[in-house]
């Protein structure tokens, strides 16, 4: 409907102004900064900043620590995301069984980690992983398994952070899957039952294909969240031991805000952006192939 110019300006200026100032201009600025040697001296004397073309990007691609961070992030995402989604799916399927009682209570228990402060639970888990007094090693010892130096062993530090991430996040995928399950017509299950399909077969032939759009959504959200992996290594391992848990965002933070190499950090940020763009393009292609539509 029609509206006066003043109204439109009044209603849109705060939001669009905020977006312009804190999103769109900074994106452009980050791109420009990534072509300069902006560092701690530039903070005081901006004139000192020089344009160095693609040097930062060349440096990124030749930086072994950056590649370690990329591989660590891919490890975290590649193992953590599928496990989180699968655990969430199983939780949703279990809570969807009609005979199950106390559903709300169970759903609440599984969802609780999602809403709690990541930093606080990371602190808690740091103590759960304590090599001598931690509950997790106590459980292992009770089961007759050798205890593990979870956060101190380069081999085990990443699995430890992945386990924490699964615990923290599976409730989210569970909830989305539960909503998706509600939308599957019961007649499909009846038809499958008439054809003699057992519970597992019903899940495999009805639930999984029917949940495909939900799964795509959960996957993209989880991937994007996991690529930004930062707080867990920040408080639990500081990226160690031996850089085994250094993530791309943690490295970006260190370069940008500890060493004030802002030109270099901006180049890292754009490489991260490329990874996100790749995920989104893949998502769009899948959607287009399956549903013949874009977005």
């Amino acid at each position: 409907m029609r509206a006066s110019r003043q109204s439109i300006l009044l209603f849109l200026t705060p939001a669009l102004g905020g977006m312009l100032l804190f999103v769109f201009m900074p994106i452009a600025a980050a791109l420009l900064i990534s072509f300069t040697d902006f560092d701690i001296y530039s903070l005081g004397y901006f004139e000192r900043t020089r344009v160095i073309g693609l040097d930062n990007y060349v440096r990124v691609f030749n930086d072994p620590v950056f590649w370690t961070a990329v591989l660590n992030t891919l490890y975290f995402v590649g193992v953590g995301a599928p496990l989180t989604i699968v655990v969430g799916l199983f939780a949703a399927l279990a809570l969807n069984v009609p005979a199950l009682r106390f559903k709300r209570l169970f759903r609440m228990a599984f969802f609780l980690p999602v809403v709690t402060t990541l930093i606080a639970v990371a602190v808690v888990w740091r103590y759960l992983y304590h090599p001598r007094y931690g509950l997790i090693n106590y459980a292992l010892i009770s089961l007759g398994i050798e205890p593990v130096d979870w956060l101190g062993d380069p081999q085990w530090a990443m699995p430890a952070l992945i386990l924490l991430a699964i615990w923290k996040n599976f409730g989210y995928s569970m909830l989305i899957f539960m909503a998706g399950l509600q939308a599957i017509p019961p007649s499909l299950y009846e038809a499958a039952r008439i054809d003699g399909a057992g519970w597992w077969q019903q899940q495999w032939y009805v639930t999984i294909p029917q949940l495909a759009p939900t799964t795509l959504f959960v996957t993209v959200i989880t991937l994007i969240g996991y690529f930004q992996f930062f707080a867990e290594p920040y408080v639990m391992t500081q990226g160690g031991p031996l850089n085994s848990t250094l993530s791309v965002v943690l490295y970006l933070y260190q370069q940008g805000f500890r060493w004030w190499q802002m030109g270099y950090a901006s180049a890292i940020a754009f490489v991260l952006f490329m990874m996100f763009a790749a995920i989104s393009i893949v998502q769009m292609l899948i959607r287009q192939r399956q549903y013949g539509q874009l977005i």
């Binding site: 100032l21 769109f24 900074p26 994106i27 690529f227 930004q228 940020a269």
Partner: peptide
């Protein structure tokens, strides 16, 4: 613009 991660704008916003 939602596709651009917050980490990209973090540095310029800090400077601003």
């Amino acid at each position: 613009s939602m596709i651009v991660p917050g980490q990209v704008t973090m540095l310029p916003v800090f400077l601003l």
